[in-house]
Design a protein around this nucleic acid. Structure first.
Lengths: 233, 233
DNA sequence: TTTGAGAATTAGGCTAGCCTAATGCCCTGT
DNA sequence: ACAGGGCATTAGGCTAGCCTAATTCTCAAA
């Protein structure tokens, strides 16, 4: 067993790194990542995914159950978390130190994450004071490969009358992020759920300053909240 | 003429960017860059260069005179200078803002220069106060694509008895750069050329603080100096 | 003026990643 | 129990970049 382990393992290609990240995200709720989900996420054709999955399972980064899907091996998970750490540290650095807008950092980080050295990432993390969350509120894996798993619920699923804290915005679309920031809907803000219209209608929330927002279902599904009155961070 | 120009020109690949940089450096003294020089600089086989030169001349980035060599077209020169700007801004940023050693920044910048956006480079340049020289003293091209051309002479070619200012270290080797820094031989320092041993022997210089250094020919060829008593920068 | 060394190019092959078209598998609904 | 839809996989092809081996060109020296 484990014939796939070679001592000086070759560095991963950009493509491989992207595939691993996709599988990580698609399996974060448990279960398998399917070929077509990966294909859609990476914007490639399904046969390209099949081919890559074969290669990755040969090198021991994923476990492939034909016609069922894939999961990361511990080795694959480690690599994926490293990429996610890079991505989120980069996003944090670009916003904090170089004045980038939170709607712009994703694409920038997406390219840079494949080019930065471990050393550079740790210097950035250090300069930032070892941040635990990126600008969108997503947890940053530690250098050791641990990631916080919070139990968050989408704003669309909160109970009317309850109070929640917006913890994370699960989106990377520039325009949507700009809009949300304008509305003051950014990680850390306290929300009281005033009402929700039926038939997947909008959720109405009150912010800390007493103003209200009407949040459509599409956006409400992206706003991940921690229930309860508790204070943020 | 100029059928090669397409309106939405495709982005250059990493390889192409590297070839253009090589040609730029190899032709900086005028003349043609030869296939084998490019091959050596990029550590590829000569036929790979021939193939790439063919492609690049088809896309109008270089001018290829078969069996003679290549030169950059204005378009190719623009692209090369952009890469060099990126590289040198990155080196400057890494040393100034993230505490990197001047011996380490080259390899890091070499990877990053292909992944950074124009916007990021300009933010970095801005954060640095639009630096004109990188940590090794090399001039940074402007965003508009202009680069300073100074008339420098290697320390090995200076006149015994003259005073010079060390302006630039034309090297990217980690160990050599560390050694030079230890010796205080960094851009900006004033040197008086005390003596030079015959048969390509070492050059002996006195620093501003009165101490002397014995600089072997190999290193002396890398130290680019501005002659005369004039003050630095 | 010829010749041969050395440089450049052409010929032919390989891998990584992608594609489309063809085929195969799985499972649900009748 | 099986037919068919939908997803996955295999088959076969393409490009960018690299390689080695074979060939061609250039130029200087005899």
């Amino acid at each position: 067993m484990n014939a796939a382990i070679r001592s000086p393992q070759p560095p991963l290609t950009r493509s491989v790194e992207d595939y691993l990240k996709s599988v990580f995200h698609l399996t974060s709720q448990g279960g398998f990542a399917t070929t077509s989900d990966i294909a859609e996420m990476l914007e490639v054709a399904p046969p390209s995914v099949s081919g890559m999955m074969k290669r990755l399972s040969e090198t021991g980064l994923i476990e492939h159950v034909p016609y069922r899907g894939v999961q990361l091996t511990p080795q694959g998970r480690r690599a994926a978390l490293q990429m996610i750490r890079r991505h989120r540290i980069l996003e944090s650095y670009l916003t904090s130190k170089l004045g980038f807008d939170w709607g712009d950092v994703h694409v920038e980080a997406e390219r840079l994450e494949h080019a930065v050295s471990e050393k550079l990432i740790e210097r950035m993390a250090d300069a930032l004071g070892e941040p635990r969350y990126d600008p969108h509120g997503a947890p940053i894996p530690t250098a050791a490969g641990e990631i916080e798993e919070a139990e968050l619920v989408t704003l669309a699923a909160t109970e009317v009358g309850s109070s929640v804290v917006l913890r994370e915005v699960g989106d990377e679309n520039r325009e949507r992020l700009h809009y949300l920031a304008e509305q003051g809907l950014i990680p850390g803000v306290h929300l009281t759920v005033i009402d929700r219209q039926p038939f997947n209608g909008p959720t109405i929330v009150r912010l800390g300053d007493g103003t209200t927002r009407v949040v459509g279902q599409e956006l409400a599904l992206l706003l991940l909240c921690r229930p309860g009155e508790a204070d943020g961070e």
